[in-house]
């Protein structure tokens, strides 16, 4: 009985169960919802969210109220840069990825320095950075969208590659493996958990926590930039606020995945399931023809409920 309860409250099990329940619900409301090609489509959408959430996971696990609200603007920036570098040419795909990932990495480092050196709370710093990037986007695009995806990239994201699955899903699987390796097989990964769990104790083992934390924001920016490349591959072109819709879901996916907002716990596989569950939830809500306000309300309530489960601060001990 006790064992059953601990299994049922395990975030991974909860996320997996909610995926099944949501699929069943969707199928009941609209037959065909859980058909094979539909599921592949849902997974493709999940992949973009999952890539953004990878960076968000690192920042949140690193602790000290870590959060990155600039991912939305950085996705838009990544998409805009990639679109302009590619301008529809297959040969420019690799440079486009490098430019998008590199620029967003650099911007993330700047946010990280604000957090570690100036000690601005992460939420405020990344929100401020989002404003700057938004402004840069307007200045760069002069209000009109520009750039477009290379055909191969679009095919890679949208068309089946092997076993009826598009290439982006294999990229996502590779990223998941890389995240596992980073977190479980490198000193950096161990350091991320250590400083998220107890920053003072981490410093007492000699870890350079400031430098590492700065790096985390850089990585988060880079993942957002790469997600931006995927976005333009998915839609063919971009507009300057294309990334905004990912900010909130990236945080919720992280929390559904079992990563405490207090830091120091969780892993990326949970986040993968969280991103899938959230995408299906969005799809179900759309199928139910729930209006925008209803979806917002459900998102907010889900976030609060998850905070109640995982995210409460420790009691004042005197």
């Amino acid at each position: 009985m006790h064992r059953a309860r601990t299994i049922l409250t395990d975030p991974l099990v909860l996320a997996a169960l909610s995926i099944l329940v949501l699929l069943g619900l969707g199928e009941a409301v609209s037959p065909g919802f859980a058909r094979g090609d539909q599921i592949v489509r849902l997974l493709t959408v999940s992949a973009i969210l999952g890539i953004v959430a990878a960076g968000q996971s690192l920042v949140v696990i690193g602790g000290r109220e870590g959060i990155d609200l600039s991912v939305g603007a950085l996705i838009s920036l990544g998409a805009l840069l990639a679109g302009n570098v590619m301008s529809g040419q297959d040969g420019n795909i690799l440079p486009a990825i490098l430019v998008a990932g590199g620029v967003t990495f650099a911007i993330g480092i700047v946010s990280g320095l604000g957090v570690t050196v100036l000690r601005i709370p992460p939420l405020v710093m990344t929100l401020g950075m989002a404003g700057v990037v938004q402004g840069a986007l307007i200045a760069m695009s002069r209000g009109t969208p520009s750039g477009n995806a290379a055909p191969t990239l679009m095919a890679f994201v949208n068309r089946p590659l092997v076993f009826g699955l598009p290439g982006i899903l294999f990229v996502w699987a590779l990223i998941a493996l890389a995240m596992w390796f980073l977190l479980r097989r490198t000193t950096l990964g161990y350091a991320i958990y250590a400083m998220g769990s107890n920053e003072r104790a981490a410093e007492f083992t000699g870890l350079p926590t400031r430098r590492l934390r700065t790096l985390l924001y850089g990585l988060s920016g880079m993942f957002a930039g790469i997600a931006g490349v995927c976005v333009i591959g998915y839609t063919g072109n971009s507009f300057i606020s294309v990334g905004d819709q990912y900010v909130l879901p990236s945080i919720i996916a992280v929390v559904i995945g079992g990563i405490s907002l207090a830091g120091g716990t969780g892993n990326y596989f949970g986040v993968v399931l969280g991103a899938i569950a959230l995408t299906i939830l969005q799809s179900v809500l759309t199928t139910l023809q729930l209006e925008f306000w209803g979806r917002q309300l459900i998102f907010g309530a889900v976030l609060l409920a998850l905070m109640l489960l995982y995210g409460r601060t420790r009691q004042l001990r005197v």
Binding site: W293, G294, G300
Partner: peptide, 23 residues
């Protein structure tokens, strides 16, 4: 009282209040 983290909590309640406004 319930000891939620202030930053994320007001972020979440902001979404809820915004949703209610749309309602």
């Amino acid at each position: 009282i319930l000891r939620f983290q202030p930053i994320v909590t007001t972020f979440a309640t902001g979404i809820i209040f915004g949703g209610l406004a749309l309602r």
